[in-house]
Simulated scan of single mutants.
Amino acid sequence: MELHFWSATGMYAMASAWVIFHQLRGHRSETVAVWWLVLAGWVMQGVPMIRELIGSGGQVGMNLALSLEWSSWVMGLLYLAGWRLLGREARLAGVLLLPLMVLTLGGALFLSTAAPEARGVTGPLLIGHLVLSLLAYGLFTIAAIFALMDAFQEHALKSKHLGALFEMLPPLNALESTLFLMVRMGFLLLTTSMVTGALHAHEQKGVYFVFSHKVVFTWATWLVFGVLLVGRHYQGWRGRRAVRFTLWGYGLLVLAFLGVKFVKEFIILNH
């Protein structure tokens, strides 16, 4: 299985290098070869994961390493779909998203050697919660990338230090529109995942809210993005405020989705 993941990592790395080189040379449109490279890596990565899922009878094992594997795969799916559906802004996200996918998958391979046995995830509610959470995480990751691009472009405009990196970015309004599209879609998926998580908790324990670090960080993420969307709708929030809220919310989501697992698996279990 590791051969598949190393091959996928290589494909993502080549696509990443191609995108960065292409953009720094001032090309406005992405070459379709990047899309095919990512697709090839995505298939190489996904085949053994899906085969293992089918072989286990639909039982998904989830620890930190597997969470990283699945999140990189979902980010690849979102990039492939966005490349075709959303145009240049979504394609440009590959400048940061593709290297992040390489690091994420590489981290999964590294941690898999020391990871504890994965906890099985079964049942439609829990699997639905997991799928929705992964999709929300992927969308918010892309939103965070656009927030960083937005911050860089606004800083360059104000400081009047324009250069090759500035020239390759789309107009500020287009960046912000795509950023808030990702936030709205991610917020909807996160809300739905929280509802399915609450229903699963009630099914298993008779309560809708189970107090845990993951739940607290998830609720904090939901509140931050909820406030951002309300501020955007009623006050027209944009610029630095939108960037700060997006990055705060994403940081809390990383803690909920990955940070809690890291503490449990590599700090608490080793003491």
Score class of each variant (00 low, 15 high):
E2T: 14
L3R: 06
L3Y: 14
H4R: 06
W6Q: 10
A8E: 01
A8W: 02
T9G: 04
G10I: 00
Y12R: 03
A13D: 04
A13W: 03
I20S: 03
R25P: 02
H27G: 01
S29F: 05
T31N: 14
V43D: 10
V47G: 04
M49K: 07
I50D: 10
E52V: 09
E52G: 15
G57M: 11
M62R: 09
M62S: 08
N63H: 03
L68I: 11
L68D: 09
L68M: 15
E69R: 11
W70R: 15
W70I: 13
S72K: 03
G76L: 04
L80I: 05
W83D: 13
R84K: 11
R84F: 09
G87C: 04
R88C: 03
R91T: 04
R91L: 01
A93I: 07
A93H: 00
G94E: 01
V95K: 00
V95Q: 01
L97N: 02
L98M: 05
L98T: 06
L100S: 15
T104I: 07
G106D: 01
A108M: 07
F110R: 15
L111G: 04
T113Q: 12
A114R: 15
A114G: 13
P116L: 14
A118L: 02
R119W: 00
G120M: 07
T122V: 14
T122H: 08
T122Y: 07
G123R: 01
G123Q: 03
L125R: 14
I127W: 05
H129C: 07
S133M: 13
L134G: 07
A136V: 10
T141P: 03
T141D: 02
A144F: 11
A144P: 08
A144H: 09
I145T: 09
I145K: 07
F146E: 10
F152C: 08
Q153L: 12
A156S: 05
L157Q: 10
G163N: 10
G163P: 01
A164S: 07
F166K: 03
M168E: 02
L169S: 09
L169F: 07
P170G: 10
P171W: 12
L172I: 15
L175P: 10
L175H: 09
F180K: 08
M182A: 12
M185G: 03
F187A: 15
L189R: 03
T191H: 12
S193L: 04
V195G: 04
T196P: 00
T196F: 11
A198G: 00
H202S: 10
H202G: 00
Q204K: 15
K205F: 15
G206I: 10
G206M: 11
V207L: 13
K214V: 01
K214I: 02
V215T: 14
T218W: 04
T218I: 02
T221I: 06
L223R: 07
L223E: 00
G226F: 06
V227Q: 06
L228D: 06
L229D: 06
L229K: 07
G231M: 08
R232T: 12
Y234S: 13
Y234L: 15
Q235S: 13
W237E: 11
W237S: 12
W237A: 12
R240M: 12
R240H: 08
A242S: 13
A242L: 07
V243S: 01
T246W: 03
T246Q: 06
G251Q: 04
G251S: 11
V254R: 00
A256T: 00
L258E: 13
G259M: 05
G259N: 05
V260Y: 06
V263N: 00
F266T: 11
F266A: 09
I267F: 10
I268R: 08
N270L: 04
